[in-house]
């Protein structure tokens, strides 16, 4: 129940997360110059999501938090997806003809 487990994340873990964030940043810059067609956007977003997950899980301690906190974070992004998906549903299908 309690959020206050006072979980101390070892410095080593922080440094590891930090290093991977930097590597992913330079990777996404490098990949943006390679022509992957429609996959450019997908890869860029996949890398961004991975980076965000790393920050959320370790820097923001969600990995060590209660189910409620995890539910909160998940719910927040789910609602963002509701906004994106249902709005795009309109734009994508606007010119469909059968």
């Amino acid at each position: 129940m309690s959020d206050t487990t006072h979980h101390v994340v070892p410095v080593r873990v922080y440094l590891l997360v930090f290093a991977s964030l930097l590597v992913l940043t330079y990777l996404t810059v490098a990949i943006s110059y390679v022509d992957l067609g429609v996959f450019n956007a997908l890869v860029a977003m996949a890398i961004a999501v991975t980076k965000a997950m790393a920050v959320i899980l370790w820097f923001m301690h969600v990995k060590y938090s209660t189910r409620l906190t995890k539910l909160c974070v998940g719910g927040g992004f789910l609602w963002l997806m509701f906004l994106f998906a249902l709005t795009m549903m309109d734009y994508i299908s606007r010119n469909w003809k059968f």
Binding site: L86, M89, D90, Y91, S93, R94, W96
Partner: peptide, 9 residues
């Protein structure tokens, strides 16, 4: 001008 398919959903 919302897409009719979106309206359906």
């Amino acid at each position: 001008s919302q897409s009719v398919y979106a309206s359906l959903v």
